[in-house]
Design a protein around this nucleic acid. Sequence first.
DNA 1: CCGTTATCCTACCCCTCAGGTAGGATTACC
DNA 2: GGTAATCCTACCTGAGGGGTAGGATAACGG
Lengths: 174, 174
Amino acid sequence: MFSTKAEYGVRVMAHLARREVDGAHGASPIALGTIAEAEGLPLAYLEHLVARLRRAALVESRRGAHGGYSLARPAERITMAEVVEALEGEIAPIECITSNAEGTLVCVRDGQPGHDPCPTKLLWTRVQGSIVRTLTEMTLADLVEPAARARRRTSAAALRSAGTPQTNSETATA
Amino acid sequence: MFSTKAEYGVRVMAHLARREVDGAHGASPIALGTIAEAEGLPLAYLEHLVARLRRAALVESRRGAHGGYSLARPAERITMAEVVEALEGEIAPIECITSNAEGTLVCVRDGQPGHDPCPTKLLWTRVQGSIVRTLTEMTLADLVEPAARARRRTSAAALRSAGTPQTNSETATA
DNA sequence: CCGTTATCCTACCCCTCAGGTAGGATTACC
DNA sequence: GGTAATCCTACCTGAGGGGTAGGATAACGG
């Protein structure tokens, strides 16, 4: 479904975001080697993934000694849809479904004589929609927040959690 | 994301369901060759797919002359989740997420020392949940129904399309 | 009982891509 | 200028997607 590109890449982003949330933000970027070691992932492979993230303007890099990567924007303003799309390419449940120019979902087999537009289109558009929706509803900050909250044991987050409709707490820690 | 296994397989199921809805149900199964020709898909390949569907007890077969396939259950009682799962195997957005014995989603990397259970788990479980939910909420009958309805009663659709050029009428309909 | 028409089963084949390695060029700090 | 990092291009390997081929088996119809 999603490959390890998405998994590893998201973990890198989460690692960067966690640092930022913890307060030691701004000045010093984090070297990829550090992240690779901490997460137990191959450095050379992460380089490819983080290159995609950079081309998508989700992270910024500083070269040379004491260089590394940092988030291009605050974690609250980065949706997981952006991250996953940067890593995996266009996010469609099946080849025949594509989104053209903001929003509308199109089936490439539309407009064929005889049978109506593929009857299965209804299914794939729904699946596509639900994936994209949950991915855009979630920001990088949401991913990191619970862990950070557990560490800080703070009350500040209570504000947000009251405002954001936690429609989906399914799979809450079993 | 999903391969053509899912796409072709769903189209085969839809073909079988359509026949049943139209009234000519029961007695005579449909030969795969007929479906392959009608859908423009390679017969030999469909044989593999339909074999999976049969092993999952979603279709029944009759061998020999005038043989073929038919739905094992009425279309309203077949969820698209069953169909896709039979064709694609276990349906998880990423390898590390699996559902164990009815419901609970588990991450294989849980319980590792040092870092908390993968921070990304929250993301993948949500994606997983939303996919499975939309897939189980939809039955094969739902897929076929609009087409059948359009054929029987051709006028009703004109109302909606004239009113608002909504981005995507199909995902919106419930 | 024999030919026809279908499902079944096993094996193979090609090609892409995921997943990763290797090695070097470039940039920046000290 | 050494060193530590990002950058870039190329290459490798195995698995799986997307089929094809060929035959065994089973049920009709005459």
